[in-house]
Design a protein around this nucleic acid. Structure first.
Lengths: 329, 329
DNA sequence: CACCTCGATGTTTACGTAAACATCGAGTGC
DNA sequence: GCACTCGATGTTTACGTAAACATCGAGGTG
């Protein structure tokens, strides 16, 4: 900056005024400064700015994996909306979902240049990490039940599951089977609970639950078991990847979807419409989740006040060709 | 820091020594400082550190979208390896793949606290952006042909495509049809070129190319057209999503895969093994791409010397159940 | 025992920026 | 015409840290 000032024949303060767009610099001076900046390839040092302002204009995002569609789509929405607000995203990957790693991430967080953190937390690990959030750093959590301590933004898992089950019951199925996600997952847990309570509300029998790990392979295994259940005519699968596996298992076992068995997924991934048959599924609005996260976290940063409570983003059932009335129904 | 020093009864320099782990602080003093740090919830200000050191220990990643499996997996690998090296990732999303937006991202880059940039660039847009990289910022590009100006890291697209075509020819197919990715994509272009040259090397006819946009839906449309080509017995599809669409189109048209038509994809996404039938595809090692990117970029940062040239990451054909000898072959 | 060495700790300074305050000159009102 | 105002610009300072240098005392050595 000093070089620019010297070249333009002004003080560094004037350069600063030009680069921050402050008023009170007359046109000709501004031009000279801009010319000098271009000539010297000057770019403001954001470290010095951050030091001066006491804020980084940066949001940290802690997440376990990007391999799930949901996480990467949410992250993308977060990054886009943060950019619109002049903030930048710093990624803090946590290798494996263990307590240690998570604590490590929070510790590293302490040294990081972030004003706030969005935690995309799929598993029941947040409890021990409570204390570790550095003071002054605001937190928003996705996919968790920590609404009593932090602002939580999440898809309305329960309502989505209810819509799926209702759709199948409305078609005339006596009951609905369920392939759930892993036991550690909040989302899986809530989808399963809503599935169960909806069946119970309607006085339907509650078949045994199979747990997968979100992967298509685990869905395939669960599907093979379901194919052996003669009275299984409708399945609600906790995500689309596993639903893909279920479809293949049923297909391989000679059970035709949707003639013999109806299948509903969850997520509405981009490929769901190209499954055989195209999958009826619960659409999650990941973009909205990301947007709400950024809004909530920036609100906290601006006001300086931590928030609690849960923000739910609604879902929508997308009916395609994997569901039909039960055979003989 | 001053508060900690006061509380511990030492100078701020000693606190600095403790927090950076420098030697030359005796045990008892160190303990007092650590205690004071804990008591006051002290965390070092990374802006001040960055200012002092003249580096941010941050790598910017410019990308268009996270919705493709490849991008998010690459990003994940980049983040993980960067973290291992003590670096952090800042995301610079570029809304739409237009020249303007890209230049905007590079401009924003100028104000950003990054030591280097990894550009994940799927389209032919880098040319105009050449000049815009701020001086002193090192660049690595993924998926591009800018190897004469920057270090490029990429999957060996050509070899992958050759493996796919060879596999089908070896099975006895007379020729191989191709569903390509969008025209703007480097990767799509190279896969298509290698497909064509491999056919030509073997003196096989080169059927007309269909272009999709990477989506399953576009693959479905291409697949419907291919189903009408009576002599089409083998298809190489430029990615797995489109292959999924092709499979559905063939299935819907009564052409059985692999009995009537063989299909090979590209990417080996997690779901490929659960397609109907499980997809033979070219496995891309996104983790290796990400790792190489980080290695290259940190090498440049450390030496201060820009690099050029292309680093290729090899692929591997994963044979599943979507390929077989041609009917009657 | 004076001197030297060396390890532990304190003091000064600089990193690049922008707020706060100071200055300076030109116009304005009486 | 003189004090006053106000806009444009310069000067000083502080942000939090760590390198460089300074100091100080303990222990060793001739």
């Amino acid at each position: 900056m000093a070089d620019v000032a010297r070249l333009a024949g002004v003080s560094s303060q004037t350069v600063s005024r030009v680069s921050t767009g402050h008023p009170g610099v007359v046109g000709t001076t501004r031009e000279q400064v801009l010319a000098a900046m271009r000539q010297l390839g000057y770019r403001p040092n954001s470290a010095a700015r951050a030091l001066k302002y006491g804020e980084f204009r940066t949001i940290g995002v802690i997440l376990f994996t990007l391999s799930s569609t949901g996480n990467s789509r949410t992250l993308e929405a977060i990054a886009t909306h943060a950019a619109d607000a002049g903030y930048v995203i710093t990624l803090i990957p946590v290798g494996a979902p263990t307590q240690d790693r998570l604590l490590g991430a929070f510790t590293r967080l302490g040294e990081l240049a972030v004003d706030a953190v969005i935690v995309i937390m799929e598993v029941h690990l947040l409890d021990a990490a409570t204390v570790a959030v550095p003071p002054g750093v605001h937190v928003v959590v996705v996919d968790s039940d920590a609404g009593d301590r932090y602002r939580v933004v999440d898809t309305d898992q329960a309502d989505g599951a209810r819509q799926a089950v209702h759709h199948l019951l409305d078609l005339g199925h006596r009951t609905v089977w369920h392939v759930a996600g892993p036991r550690e997952s909040y989302a899986a847990e809530r989808r399963a609970l809503a599935w169960r309570s909806t069946l119970e509300e309607h006085g339907r029998p509650v078949p045994p639950v199979r747990h997968g790990d979100w992967s298509a392979e685990s869905g395939y295994r669960a599907g093979l078991e379901l194919a052996d259940e003669a009275d299984c005519t409708a399945v609600f699968v906790a995500n689309d990847q596993m639903a893909l596996g279920v479809l293949r298992a049923l297909h391989g076992s000679g059970r035709v979807v949707p003639r013999d068995v109806s299948v509903v997924g969850f997520d509405d991934i981009a490929e769901a419409g190209a499954f055989i048959p195209p999958l009826t599924t619960v659409h999650q609005d990941f973009a909205a989740v990301g947007r709400r996260c950024v809004e909530a976290v920036l609100r906290q940063v601006r006001t300086g006040t931590p928030e609690t409570g849960t923000t739910l983003v609604s879902t929508r059932l997308v009916v395609r060709e994997s569901t039909a009335p039960p055979p003989g129904g």
